[in-house]
Amino acid sequence: MSLYLAITCIATSQAAKLDRSPEALEKGATIYHRACIFCHGIAGKGDGPAAFFASSYSAPRPKDFTRKDYKFRSTISGELPTDQDLFRTITNGIPGYMPPFEGLTETERWNVIAYIKTFSPAFQTEHVNTLITLEMPPRPATSDSIARGRMMYLELECHVCHGLDATGHGPVHTQGDLKDNTGLPIQPTNLTNLPSFKNGASPQDIARTILTGLDGAPMPSYASAFSSPDTSIWHMVNYVLSLSTATQP
């Protein structure tokens, strides 16, 4: 077992809902070619005909499905996402960059997930059996909790990228040092703008992002900074949530 003590490690079936039959894969391919190919490309390399325009000379570009590092996961850093992680991203989209595809039926979304997973052999050879689960209820956002969250924000040095004012202008970013794995400059999330959170804006989404990091981007996993059983992550979440509610009366 890894040293991620903050997380509960459970064995799970990666494909509880996933139909990998040839029929399902064929349906998934059809949907992929109608809906996904324009950004992600026919071979899933993230090089579709519209892939350049959304962010051009900055990150993020559309996901290259042939690579195994995924940003939006419930798994520890370096591991593949679960099917449920992929389903969540397709359903909700990525604020700013990928529209939600909840217009596809659930079956269609599972079919396209089955097809997407054929682009990387890692999905066949590596089994995801360690998940970060966040079953603890969020702590109430009391002023004490938010203040403790602010203290953690500083102690864990979140501000070096996100800035003391949390608007995404920390010193490492302003020095131009932040790049994603493809070498494109990347902007830390403005934590005062909740709707822009790419990995979701619910308390669980925020906690998951902090614990797992965003593989492929500079955002690291903070799992080792939280001990188990530890509810202090929710102080941090409450603080982050408070940054937006303060500016959105």
Partner: peptide, 25 residues
């Protein structure tokens, strides 16, 4: 933060804070 990549692919990207526990990969 220790960010280990194989080519352009992240193998692990983890923070270890002051007095933080080691991490194995």
């Amino acid at each position: 933060n220790t960010h280990i990549r194989l080519g352009e692919t992240t193998m692990v990207n983890v923070v270890i804070v002051k007095n933080g526990r080691p991490i194995r990969k």
